[in-house]
Design a protein around this nucleic acid. Structure first.
Length: 737
DNA sequence: CGCTGCACAGATAGT
DNA sequence: CTGTGCAGCG
């Protein structure tokens, strides 16, 4: 094989730095291939090299390759890596998420998919809002049938490729009710030209299933299909890949069953396990050498994941030495935990480490708050990923709703969202009438409103207000039609009255919201500048920028790149951290109830998924990992006692080291020594901005004081000692200057 | 109709 | 603690 290659051409640039199994995967003969790639074993590298191999050695056209990833970020990175490697843009190459690719197909074949040309995408928030309305229409009590539960049911159905008609009737009233809600919701979506995330996949699947000529076209075109993170595919994604891969097929899938953490979204770890059954002749290659972590980190991760059953099994190993033990820190409470972490990062930076090489990983976003607070206090640059994203902000959704109405008048959720935003005198009564009419005539709210305006049903005052709204949207459309997108966005924000409404809102966040609206204009301008119509599915000849942008807003989480270049501590959920690596990793909140989460601990299947998440967390670390848990934590505003997570115990003791809580131990409330009068005076007498002297740190200034009595801590900036320090006042001798 | 204030429930993860 | 829903007043 090697000999043959050297005769044909020099392929060392593709294969040089690969180990044997990696090379075997990259150069494998065409046909179904499964690569089981452990954490840190060079998975992404193998995928990108395989694409390069197909292009350079197998003479594949970029046109014939489809690569699927799970996040937009991963897709963008893969494309740029391959393009960099081959030193040329590869326009014909399709790289994207399942949702992105499905969307592109539906835009291109909207007629065959029986969708209106300007169909819009519902994000989960939109979906829940729409469901609330559906539940009201069906007279279902929201208390008994939470909209979120209904959304869960519908999404599960779609993930399992079930239309309302083929939902299994198990005879329970609950199932019937859910089915009824699903059917009504679906009708509403159809009428409004709306497609939710699950629908994107299901429609794309049905598009091919019901149009054999289209399917054949794509089967012939995509000779080579590559799927990353295959362990996270759900039923419909799996079937979609099967449908696309004709026979013979070249399907190259990469995944790690131990990193399947999206079961809640319908992903099936079985998919990667049964691949070899469904794709005859499939070969399997295991990548087991880890290039990322120390021996101790790998052993810890291996020991933990060994508690799971039904794994495909692999044995991760490394050439690297053992390295430091896993550090375990038992914090008093969440504040102590955060202080400890930030202090250790400060030490890391002090000894020459980079902040961007450190990560704080938590189970749920709510945990980020306290870290943010402490990081701000320590003046340490940080970046939080996830949380409330740009396109999810209320003011942005308002603006997008106007834009969506401009694109498609029948978009009922958008209509409802802004019909009275800013307030123009359209209240609940009027809206009820509009809804009833729409329902009675099976038409959209927009159409119902137009009809009502022709009759006498509306009071003259309501009719006037409603007419103003319709005229406004028509005018927004007409007056901005010939403008480029950013001007259009700007026009809509200004003339809809949103800009004024938020600018005049003196309450807490008005000003920031007005700024965000301005930012939306910039975002749309950047979108035009950087968007590749080929990637987003726009018709390159005559892109419908408005629709393309609206789809982008729904599909792309819209995290802001600002500050990405700065050297920042990285904060994110364990889920988001999958695929990333850091030198120093803090895994925080390892407490029963929090991680594993309460709702997952009862069921073995879910517990195993939590364990895989723990595995993902540990294997993110190159050099050193900390497991932190707090004994007490504020939850829902009240203090709760917490026990260490079982996952802490599942790391063998021989690999761990307990961090002795020095200063922090003294803070524990257990039998606190009586506060001496002198200490009380010392604590009470300290003031902000006061200048003090410390025997070791020299002169300093008090930046912050918190706690009271015995617990009082002060943050004091000591220039001579290199920055601010938190001191327990009762234990510190400070001279006031 | 629109606003304010109060009661209440609710938070795992993300395309 | 925070966002949402609903009642009651201006």
């Amino acid at each position: 094989m090697i000999l043959l290659e050297s005769l044909v051409m020099d392929v060392s640039w593709i294969l040089d730095d690969l180990n044997d199994p990696q090379r075997a995967a990259v150069t494998a003969p065409l046909g179904p291939l499964r690569v089981l790639a452990g954490a840190g074993s060079g998975k992404t590298r193998v995928l990108t090299r395989r694409i390069a191999w197909l292009l350079a050695v197998e003479n594949a056209s970029p046109w014939s390759i489809l690569a699927v990833t799970f996040t937009n970020k991963a897709a963008a990175e893969m494309r740029s890596r391959v393009e960099a490697m081959l030193d040329q843009p590869l326009g014909g190459l399709w790289v994207g998420t399942f949702h992105g690719i499905a969307h592109r197909l539906l835009r291109q074949h909207w007629q065959e998919a029986r969708l209106p040309r300007a169909f819009q995408i519902l994000d989960s928030d939109d979906q829940t809002r729409l469901l609330k309305r559906v539940l009201r229409d069906l007279n279902v009590d929201e208390k008994k049938w939470p909209p979120l539960a209904a959304a869960g049911f519908i999404n599960r159905c779609k993930d399992e490729m079930q239309r309302p008609a083929n939902v299994l009737d198990d005879g329970t009233p609950a199932q019937r009710q859910n089915q009824r809600i699903y059917a009504t919701y679906q009708q509403e979506c159809e009428r409004s030209g709306l497609v939710d995330f699950g629908e994107l996949l299901l429609r794309a699947y049905e598009l091919w299933r019901d149009h054999p000529n289209l399917l054949t076209h794509y089967q012939e075109r995509f000779q080579h299909v590559l799927v990353d993170e295959f362990q996270d595919t759900n039923t419909i994604q799996y079937q979609w890949v099967r449908l696309l891969s004709g026979n013979p097929c070249d399907v190259f899938i990469v995944g790690d069953d131990d990193q399947c953490v999206y079961g809640w979204r319908g992903s099936k770890v079985e998919n990667i396990q049964k691949f070899s059954d469904d794709f005859p002749g499939a070969q399997t290659i295991r990548l087991e050498q880890n290039y990322r972590s120390t021996g101790v980190i790998l052993k810890a991760a291996n020991a933990l994941i060994a508690n799971n059953t039904g794994r495909l099994g692999k044995n991760l190993w490394t050439n690297a030495g053992d390295g430091d033990p896993v550090q375990i820190y038992a914090a008093f409470n969440e504040t102590d935990e955060a202080r400890f972490v930030v202090e250790r990062i400060r030490q890391w930076v002090e000894t020459g480490g980079q902040r961007r090489e450190t990560a704080i990983l938590y189970r749920s976003n709510a945990q980020s708050r306290i870290f943010e607070e402490i990081l701000v206090g320590a003046a340490m640059p940080y970046r939080i990923y996830g949380g409330l994203r740009f396109f999810e902000r209320a003011e942005i959704k308002d603006a997008l709703a106007y834009l969506r109405l401009v694109a498609n008048r029948d978009d009922d959720p958008s209509f409802e969202r802004v019909v009275n935003t800013p307030p123009r005198g359209i209240g609940g009564r009027t809206l009820d009438l509009l809804r009833d009419t729409a329902r009675a005539e099976s038409c959209s709210l927009w159409q119902a409103t137009s009809r009502l305006l022709g009759g006498k049903a509306l009071s003259s005052r309501a009719a006037h207000a409603v007419r103003r709204f319709l005229d406004l949207v028509e005018a927004l459309d007409r007056d901005s039609q010939d403008q480029p997108l950013p001007e259009r966005v700007s026009h809509v924000i200004a003339y809809s009255g949103l800009q004024t409404m938020y600018a005049e809102d003196k309450a807490d966040k008005g000003e920031m919201r007005a700024e965000n609206l301005d930012e939306l204009i910039n975002v749309s301008a950047r979108f035009i500048a950087h968007c590749d119509p080929v990637i987003t599915g726009a018709d390159p000849a005559e892109p419908d920028w408005l629709n393309t942008f609206l789809a982008h807003a729904a599909l792309e989480s819209g995290e802001r790149q600002a500050g990405a270049g700065e050297d920042c501590v990285q904060l994110m959920t364990l889920h988001m951290a999958k695929g990333l690596e850091f030198s120093l990793v803090f895994l925080v909140g390892w407490e029963e109830g929090l991680f594993p989460h309460n709702r997952s601990a009862a069921q073995e299947r879910q517990l195993e998924e939590e364990r895989r998440l723990a595995y993902v967390g540990i294997t993110r670390a190159r050099q050193r990992v900390y497991l932190c848990h707090a004994e007490q934590r504020r939850w829902y505003g009240k203090e709760t006692q917490q026990n260490p997570s079982r996952f802490v115990r599942e790391v063998p003791e021989a690999l761990t080291q307990d961090v002795r809580a020095r200063v922090n131990a003294k803070l524990r409330p257990k039998a606190p020594p009586a506060l001496s009068p002198a200490a009380a005076m010392a604590a009470g007498g300290l003031q902000l901005r006061q200048r003090v002297h410390h025997a070791k740190f020299g002169e300093g200034v008090v930046l912050a004081i918190e706690g009271e009595g015995y617990h009082t801590r002060a943050q004091i900036h000591f220039p001579a000692a290199g920055g601010p320090k938190w001191l327990v006042v009762a234990y510190t001798k400070l001279d006031r200057l």
